[in-house]
Amino acid sequence: MIIDTVKDRLRELFPSVPEPPAAENADEKPIQTEPAVGFFDRSYTERGYHLDVKLLPDQLVTATGILFELGFFLETITGVDWIKENSLEAVYDFSRYDFDLCRIVLRVRTPRTDPLLPTITGIYSGASWHERETHDFFGIVFDGHPHLIPLLLPEDADFHPLLKDFKA
């Protein structure tokens, strides 16, 4: 099973977290009480993905590199504005082409005031547009992106419509 391989490889990233709680039930334990970093099994039938990986921004490129080596492809990059917690979250969805079904979600948080994340375009070229889109909608700056200009919004857009405090 590829998911075990992924877990083994990711364990190197989290030396401080000894052993993540296995098969955690999301209903009993709300997300907020989970540790801020680490990886967590999720029920595929309920959530639609197998592994939820919470990362610090500087771990993102390494984790993405591991997934690329293991043959995952990038489905999409999503931003979420957690305005109450004053942070922006970038969510990376990965999936596989073969029949070893495994969907993996990487999550990174960055402060709302100065959102800055490393780019993964060096690994997945296709992330370029996804990152530009996330930059359009949330204002997250992807450090090292070769061409971070508005993609879907007009080229002179200076607003970020998917922020919760955006007023048209």
Partner: peptide, 19 residues
Amino acid sequence: MCQRYGATGPVARGSGINY
């Protein structure tokens, strides 16, 4: 290239990816 860009559907299947 399909993997790097996340190509799916007939584009991936035309490149020999059974997905």
